[in-house]
Design a protein around this nucleic acid. Structure first.
Lengths: 311, 311
DNA sequence: CCTGCTCATAAGCCCAGCTTATGCAACGCG
DNA sequence: CGCGTTGCATAAGCTGGGCTTATGAGCAGG
């Protein structure tokens, strides 16, 4: 009985879900603390728990992973070689969690925040959380609120005085707003590694791209606009989906070639879940801009955030 | 009472540790499942739990974050706007956890694995987990074991027949091994954003770099070797630390400029915790190579993995 | 030799998350 | 129009993981 039965989503051969095989955030934070301070007890104090709790938690993490992580000695604890590696991998999870937390907090703080940001989806998804983490490190007491929407919505909020700083990714800047380019983005053509295009040697020609049915965002999205403009309104949809995520999932699943922001596919390219297909002579670049009401040069917290965004 | 007291490591103004503010992995996986299948009940079934469990878990996640994540209706559940954003951020955590899991499994499987990999630290830390995730997606039943060490150790394992495929990042290929370049890496000079160099307009000259005390890895490390070679053995240490992580931490903390692999600082640059300082006329590039015993061209699982590594 | 640091073990508490058993609302179909 | 199906919510009860306090044992240094 129990629930060992393999339902739909479970890949074969993995005993239970990720959550059962990966230590929880608390344990990972503890491990990082141990690595930093070199002692279970002091790490425990740093996290506000007792030494036995830390000891037991590290031990159960070692049991779970099947690997010794720390070398205990009467004079402290050091990471084993495997432990150092695990700790580095753990740090990635914790950093992602920090970004999540910063973003979530901004989503919640809505009311009494000192800095109200409006951002387009792509920027809110991929860039903003990192900026918020950095901002929090610099100015821990700046409460930020975030509102995500398309370029028009961002402009409205700014002009209505309901937001202090905006971020957009269109080809044009909405009227009534000043802007500064903070980064560049590019649309890229991607396929699953199994797709024939992944084995091409020569870059794709614009006509080939225009002639091929693609997995795309819906008409009206920023991404789609740029693509249509670049191809002269010719983009041929295989499927139209309403979120970047859905498009990625379809592409990973082998539905067909997709066109997506470079920002959106970084992770997937790194993990080789998607392969980037070079394209020739198609202008797929676009600017990412910070925007604010004409004249109202960002000051205070808005200026702090803005200065973080241009590295 | 309880433990609200702010001990050393806690930044002010954050109520408790990350783990208390970020939903656990199980909840995040559940959220992703709900987003995918559009129903609490079906998501629950997919994860092998009951519908009330899923319902309660999503609800408590919403309470924790202070944001409504899903719109429930008698015909299913769809993400709210905020929910879509949160789900995207959650996906990053889950992906990091998948990489962690793939790595940890390789660390454990030591014995009966079909593919034994030996890799240098930098590659094991930053690249390999992603490759393993991709490999698992392609060939779910390939058990991989991982041994991390320096170039010499990698070569030894391969030549002793204790590893099937190696990855090194040196300037030279150890004797007795064939190799293929799989990627390029570059050392970069980084500082905390507060460092004077961060506000420089002109690239750093080689002499300035050589004349400045730097935060460095210990002598003998791959990174250090490349730097010394590039500067003509002149690198002047401010501190010498024994792990990439420690170097990063020192640099982030403002100890001084550091020289690190591009791979190692990607995250920090994105979050603006570190700033990259352009350098002129210093050859800091290096190749990342797959290696194997001369003649034993990789086959089977080794070949699968190898083909994943050249995107 | 005692004091102070480290970690380990034991016994007990508490809450988060699970289960089963319900109820209620909306849709589609004979 | 009632019936079955699908989807979510609520209630009551169990269990285990993680916490606490209390204690012991190994090693270093004044």
């Amino acid at each position: 009985m129990s629930r060992t039965e393999d339902h739909g989503g479970e890949r074969p051969g993995n005993g239970g879900s990720l959550a059962h095989r990966v230590p929880d955030l608390g344990a990972l934070e503890l491990l990082l603390a141990v690595a930093r301070v070199g002692s279970l007890g002091r790490a425990a104090r740093e996290l506000g728990i007792t030494q036995p709790a830390a000891s037991s938690r590290i031990r159960s993490m070692e049991r779970q992973l099947g690997v010794a992580l720390v070398d205990r000695s009467p004079r402290g604890s050091r990471l084993t070689d495997a432990g150092a590696l695990v700790t580095d991998w753990a740090r990635r999870i914790v950093e992602a969690a920090e970004a999540f937390d910063a973003g979530a907090q901004a989503l919640r703080d809505r009311r009494d925040s000192r800095l109200r940001v409006a951002a387009s989806m792509t920027i809110a998804e991929y860039l903003l959380p990192g900026w918020l983490v950095a901002l929090r490190a610099q100015r821990p007491d700046t409460a930020v609120s975030l509102l995500a929407g398309n370029s028009t919505a961002v402009a409205e909020r700014l002009l209505a005085g309901e937001a202090d700083l905006g971020f957009v990714e269109g080809l044009t800047v909405p009227g009534g707003l000043d802007s500064a380019v903070i980064a560049h983005d590019r649309l890229v053509v991607v396929t699953a590694p199994s797709h024939p295009w992944a084995r091409r040697r020569r870059p794709l020609a614009a006509e080939e791209l225009a002639a091929t049915p693609l997995v795309l965002r819906e008409e009206g999205s920023g991404t789609r606009q740029v693509l249509d403009a670049a191809l002269g309104g010719l983009a041929r949809p295989l499927i139209e989906l309403s979120s970047t995520t859905a498009v990625k999932a379809a592409a990973v699943g082998g539905a067909g070639p997709a066109v997506l922001s470079e920002l959106a596919v970084g992770e997937e390219l790194g993990m080789r879940r998607l392969v980037r297909i070079p394209v020739q002579s198609v202008a797929l670049a676009r600017d990412l801009r910070a925007v604010w009401p004409t004249g109202h040069r960002p000051a205070g917290p808005a200026r702090d955030l803005l200065s973080l965004t241009r590295g």
